[in-house]
Amino acid sequence: MNTKSLQASLLELVRRTSCDLPPDVESTLRRALAREQKGTTAKYALEVVHKNIALAREKSLPICQDTGSILFYVTGPKDLDSRAFRKAGDAAVKAATELGYLRQNSVDSLTGKNSGTNLGPGSPVYHFEQGSKRTIAVRLILKGGGCENVGIQYALPNGALGAGRDLAGVEKCLLDAVYKAQGKGCAPGILGVCIGGDRAIGFAHSKEQFLRTLEDKNPNPTLAKLETRVMKKANALGIGPMGFGGKTTLLGCKIGALNRLPASFFVSISYMCWAYRRRGCVIGGSGKVSRWLYT
């Protein structure tokens, strides 16, 4: 594969992800704007949000200055050279940082020193999976720190919530998480949830839910119903855009489930802000983009 082409393709993927919200997110936000009452700060906040989305697209600049954790999800053929891919991804991220599509966002946890390039241990993050096609599907999520900080993991049973090891218990956790987040994760937000798994894979799977579109329907009917129920109830909390109070607190709720140990029952919740930056593309053998995803 042509390394230069691959780098250029990934750089364009980073630019699009940072500067241009996917259509499903934008249309969901538009419906939210229509729902809020005239003259309220909730409506005002969503008007600014829309103005911002348009401005970022027009100027080709980051929607949010916190360009967040850089999460690549790569599905490739069985002979995909993951080390070469990482090298191209790192080069694209470094270039995107120099161009201002990404903020200098990677800090040494011991010294506090910013690497200035977004490269360093744990940044960016790559998830590789083997697919059945000859092409490489690359999905990218940029997730800011404000929303990452309000993520939470519950271990059931939870006495304070009266939450047992069942779906009713899970539902209580999800509503509690939305309440606890208030506007701090840049509401209206999206919940990515994993029921089960261990503590690490639970959070990883909760984030993978953000690869779904807001308009999709969960193939598992039990989870689909739970998603609908949580959306309705969370939006009755009245937290609203930015926590100003209002009708739209959540834009989406996406739930997955993994098996658990008999002794454990984790509910892992990742919160995504309204600036839900998710893009993807299919890259052919030449390293060039053959198709954009989520369009």
């Binding site: 906040a45 949000v49 911002n52 506007g183």
Partner: peptide, 25 residues
């Protein structure tokens, strides 16, 4: 408004100065 980085950057007319750039990043 959280996340409204462009609307808010748009009203910055000038960077007058910067302090602690080296020290804090």
């Amino acid at each position: 408004i959280g996340g409204a980085a462009q609307v808010l950057a748009d009203v910055v007319t000038e960077v007058k100065d910067v302090y602690f750039l080296e020290k804090f990043g």
